[in-house]
């Protein structure tokens, strides 16, 4: 299945990736070849087959509702590219 440049740009936007024009072309070609490859799944009859999202039949596992220590604020901030004593710091969320 061919993948158009505009499809690639839309998917890149959804994935929060910036692509150069060269990359858009390369990714279009590579995605098309991979998608053509996975298109063979269409040969398999799957009517009425329950999708299998997970190999285990365990659901909604809960642990005892007791307090356990977590990361300190200092630890949680320690890997941040930019932070002050209390918060993660980021560029403006909206344009000025």
């Amino acid at each position: 299945m061919p993948i158009t440049s505009s499809q690639v740009r839309k998917v890149a936007q959804l994935a929060r990736l910036e692509l150069t024009e060269d990359e858009v072309q390369l990714v279009s070609d590579q995605l098309a070849s991979i998608v053509t490859f996975v298109d063979q799944l269409g040969e398999v009859a799957t009517d009425g087959v329950e999708p299998m999202a997970h190999p285990l039949d365990i659901h909604t596992v809960v642990r005892p509702d007791t307090e356990v220590p977590g990361l300190s604020r200092e630890q949680a901030l320690s890997n941040s590219p930019n932070h002050n004593d209390e918060c993660f710091l980021v560029p403006p969320v909206m344009a000025r």
Partner: peptide, 26 residues
Amino acid sequence: IMLGTFALSAGYYDAYYKKALQVRRL
């Protein structure tokens, strides 16, 4: 990331992601 985002995006989810989960069960 691009491939996964594509397979989960509107219009392709059933044809790719859901289909793959069904074949996974088989």
